[in-house]
Design a binder for these strands. Structure first.
Lengths: 242, 242
DNA sequence: CATACCTGACTAACCGGTCAGTTAGTGTAG
DNA sequence: CTACACTAACTGACCGGTTAGTCAGGTATG
């Protein structure tokens, strides 16, 4: 699940990544200082530099860590390609269930906006985008092959879906537009417009709560309290930057 | 050439806004310093503070200035609502014709990502979003009334269109996705999916663009250039932050 | 002792904003 | 026409605060 890796600060280096997540939610990327991250952990700022040479190294490691989580969160089961596609959209556009969700999405958007200045960021972000795009593309292609979808271009269609997802996140952060509305609309797009033969029937396709995933990321406690050597501490599942 | 925004530097204060535009393109928002802006003008940093008390005041004035340009750039003529809708999409998703276009879009995205931390920014950005949303909504409502569009919800549909526009811009900045592809897709969405009676025929719906853009959807040349100018109301203006 | 891990104190650089003072223009009195 | 006064616009130098990164140690463990 999504709480696989972030939840278990086995090593100090991993604890730092968890602290980075919390600090990003609290301060955002632009105002994020090494001291902020240190304050979220039980380490000093100098200790951060012991494990990661530079601030950028730390952020890059954080993105890698995030990517791995994104991979597993996208591994939605389901034989039906349309079901899988809807599940994927759900993962990417899940409504804020954690308090920090909106904040984290904001930090991710800040990172995206830095991509043109920081090729290293861009490279990582492209991986997220590619992964999501490929996941959608495969589902669409399968749906076409199964005769469920019209004979659209899977690649172009996947691009459109990913673009809509990006738009929902951006608009949510910048003007507070509800993500959920876009999700419904996008789901309607794939379950109606893309479906073959389905002319125009407004066939209600609220796979919303029904679909297998329900809540992919259980994620219980919002943030119990930092340290404690135990294992499943504040499991802060990340979201997708794609 | 219209290397910078069209605004004629009538007053020193306006010249500063032009310099701000240039500095934003060159440095982005995150790394923008008052000195950067001063360097783009023929004034000193202290002179900037003479006209604008704080850096934020300057940026806010810049957003106001931008908004006015956006208003006029959205004033696309055209009696046909669909034509007007496509024209609006074109304004929002015009391919980079200025060198600084991508850079400026990046700066705008940085600003959007700051909205949650700076209510003053958010307020301005909401104005952009509302304006674009309202423009689209009106066109959609008219198209429905004219029997051209199906009986969709104009408000929700406009939201979707604006979201797609946001997504195209975000994805363009963060991973370099081509804006043009999304524009074609979005135009196809409104001229096919939304059109009443039009079941699935790829009926080419390229009405001569009113805003000077001939073929909207097809757009064969990936790197169009040439034309333009003619009917242009001169207000090529900035891009929309919406 | 050696190694891994960590700390407090420090440095160098940067940036927003301030300030005393300069320049240029304009009006006004002699 | 000159002399002076006043003001808007502007400048270079400077200040205070902040931050990434460094460094000389300290501590615990094997």
């Amino acid at each position: 699940m999504s709480d696989t890796e972030p939840a278990d600060p086995d090593t100090p280096a991993e604890e730092i990544l968890c602290a980075t997540y919390r600090a990003l939610c609290r301060h955002g990327y632009a105002d994020l200082t090494m001291q902020d991250i240190a304050d979220e952990s039980d380490l000093s700022k100098a200790a951060l530099h012991y494990h990661y040479d530079t601030k950028q190294d730390l952020l890059l490691a954080f993105l890698d860590h995030l990517y791995e989580e994104f991979v597993s969160s996208l591994a939605v089961a389901g034989g039906d390609p349309v079901e899988r596609l809807v599940g994927t959209i759900d993962v990417a556009l899940s409504p804020p269930r954690r308090d920090a969700d909106r904040e984290f999405r904001t930090a991710v958007l800040e990172l995206k906006a830095q991509a043109p200045y920081e090729p290293a960021y861009r490279e990582k972000l492209e991986a997220f985008d590619d992964l999501l795009h490929e996941t959608v593309r495969e589902a669409v292609a399968e749906a076409i092959e199964a005769g469920v979808f019209r004979d659209v271009d899977p690649d172009e269609t996947a691009s459109f879906v990913v673009t809509v997802i990006n738009g929902a996140q951006t608009r949510h952060v910048s003007v507070g537009a509800p993500i959920d509305e876009t999700r419904s609309r996008l789901v309607a797009y794939v379950t109606e417009t893309l479906v073959a033969g389905d002319g125009r029937e407004p066939e209600r396709a609220d796979t919303a709560g029904s679909d297998g995933d329900g809540d992919l990321a259980p994620d219980p406690d919002p943030d119990g309290e930092s340290e404690n050597g135990g294992s499943g501490d504040g499991s802060d599942g990340e979201e997708d930057p794609a």
